[in-house]
Design a protein around this nucleic acid. Structure first.
Lengths: 232, 232
DNA sequence: ACCACAGTATGGTCAGACCATACCGAACCA
DNA sequence: TGGTTCGGTATGGTCTGACCATACTGTGGT
C-alpha cells in the first residue's frame, strides 16, 4: 500500500472513450442501420478529442461491421451505420487461422454443427427453397473446382439463411469464406463430385419434405463424403 | 463506355494495404502468438506510409484480437501477436445487439445449438471435469443473481472448453458475455434456482459417464427451464 | 552487490495541413 | 423554360511533426 490515493491499473485510451460514447448514443438515440453518425471533425470537437482518435474509433467500428464510411458529400457520405457482421467474422477467422491459433479441423467441426442445426430448422420452417435449387443448378453447370465450390457455398449458406437465424447464417458464411481455399483443394482431391451432387439433392428433398431428422442425417453424411480424411 | 482504359471501382485505403502486408508477413514468416511486430514508426518507414496509417491498421488487428499493444520498452513492449478472438466476438455481438440487427432470440438459439454440441463432445472426449465441479460449487455458494450467473457462465463455458474446440468455445464465451444482463434478469424472474442446479448436476453426471445422448437431452431441457418463455 | 538516475524506445495524442471525392447551387447558355 | 457547366464546400484519407507517459536499459556511484 502506498497510501497516495493511487489509481487502478486500467488506463483508457482516448479512442476507447470515443467508442463508448458512440455506443451510448446508438443505444440512447435508438440508432439503427442506415442512420448517420456525425462527421469526424464534428465528433472530435463535440467530444473534445483529436480527429485521429475519432478515426481510430471509426476504424474499430468499421472492423466490427457496424459502420461504413463514404467520402464525398451528400446524404450517403460520412459514417453510416450498417449491419455487416459477416465480413468481420470472416476476417477474424482468416487471421486466426493464419496465426495457427485455430486449426482447420475446428472450423470444419463448427461447420458440421451449424449445418446440421440449420438444415433441421430450415426443414422445420418450411422455408423457400428456390435459392437452394438455383445453387444446385449452378453446381451442375460448374466447369471448375472453384466454380463448384462457389455454388456449393451458396447452397449451404442458403440453408443457413432459410433457418431464419441471422447470427448463425453470418457465422456460416464466415466459416465458408475462411475455408474457401481448403474447400477447393478438397474438391480437386476428390475429383468426382457426383456423390456430393446426390447428397445435395437428398438434403434439398428432406428440407422440402419438412423432415428435420432426415435433413440432419443427410448433412452429416454429406460432410463425411466431402472431407473423408477428417472422419473416422 | 468511355473506352479510356478505365479504372476498377475499388480504391484501397492505405491502412488496408498495411493490413495486407502485415498479414502476408504473418503467413510467410510463420509468426504465431507471442511474436512481436516491428514498432509503428519502423513499420511506417518500411512500408513507405505515415504512422497514422500504420496505427489504423494496428487498431483493426487489435479489434480482431490478433495483436495487443503495450507501451514502454523492452521485450514485452510494442505490438505482440496474441490469440484472443473472444473479446472481438463479444464486442461484435454486443454492438449488433445494440443496433437491433440481431435479436436475443437468435443469440439464445445459437447458444442452444452450441451447448448441445459441446456437451455431447465433452462427454465423448472423457474430459477433465474439475472446472465443472468448481463452477457448480460456486453456484451453490452464490448469494445474488449476478454471482449465480457468473458461475453459471463459467460452468457452460467449461463444457465448451472441454469439447476441445477452441473456436466453438470462443463463440460460446462471446454469446454468454453479450447476453449477461439478459441472463441475470432471467434468473431473477425465475426466483428459485433449484431446478437449474439439478439440471447442472445431471449434465455433469452425463459428461462424466461419457453418455453423449443423455448430455444432449439434459442440456436441452436445462435451457427450456432457464428460458421458459422462449420455448413452446 | 546494490541502488539511483539519466537515456531511450515504445505507444498515445494532438494540431494542422493538404488531397480526392462527390454533392450542391448558382451562373450561364440554349 | 430548360439544361449544362463550373466553382464552392463538406466529407473522409493521408501525411508531417511535435509532445507526452510509460517502462525498460545501462551507467555510474556507493
Amino acid at each position: 500500500m502506498d497510501g497516495t490515493g493511487w489509481r487502478p491499473v486500467k488506463r483508457t485510451r482516448t479512442f476507447e472513450d470515443v467508442l463508448a460514447q458512440i455506443e451510448r448514443r446508438i443505444a440512447e438515440d435508438g440508432l439503427t442501420a442506415g442512420d448517420r453518425l456525425p462527421a469526424e471533425r464534428q465528433l472530435a470537437e463535440q467530444l473534445g478529442v483529436s480527429r485521429s482518435s475519432v478515426r481510430e474509433a471509426m476504424r474499430v467500428l468499421e472492423t466490427l461491421g457496424v459502420v461504413s464510411s463514404q467520402v464525398g458529400r451528400g446524404p450517403d457520405a460520412g459514417a453510416v451505420l450498417t449491419s455487416r457482421p459477416d465480413s468481420a467474422l470472416t476476417d477474424l477467422l482468416r487471421l486466426h487461422l493464419g496465426l495457427a491459433s485455430l486449426e482447420m479441423r475446428e472450423v470444419i467441426d463448427a461447420r458440421h454443427m451449424i449445418e446440421q442445426w440449420a438444415a433441421a430448422h430450415a426443414a422445420g420452417a418450411g422455408a423457400d427453397t428456390s435459392a437452394l435449387a438455383a445453387a444446385l443448378a449452378g453446381m451442375d453447370a460448374a466447369e471448375s473446382a472453384e466454380e463448384f465450390v462457389e455454388h456449393d457455398t451458396a447452397f449451404h449458406c442458403a440453408i443457413a439463411d432459410a433457418s431464419g437465424n441471422r447470427l448463425i447464417a453470418a457465422i456460416m458464411r464466415s466459416l465458408r469464406d475462411s475455408m474457401r481455399r481448403y474447400s477447393v483443394e478438397a474438391v480437386q482431391r476428390l475429383g468426382d463430385t457426383s456423390i456430393l451432387r446426390a447428397d445435395h439433392v437428398r438434403i434439398l428433398a428432406a428440407i422440402e419434405d419438412g423432415d428435420a431428422e432426415e435433413a440432419t442425417r443427410a448433412v452429416s453424411e454429406h460432410l463425411a463424403h466431402a472431407y473423408p480424411t477428417l472422419f473416422r
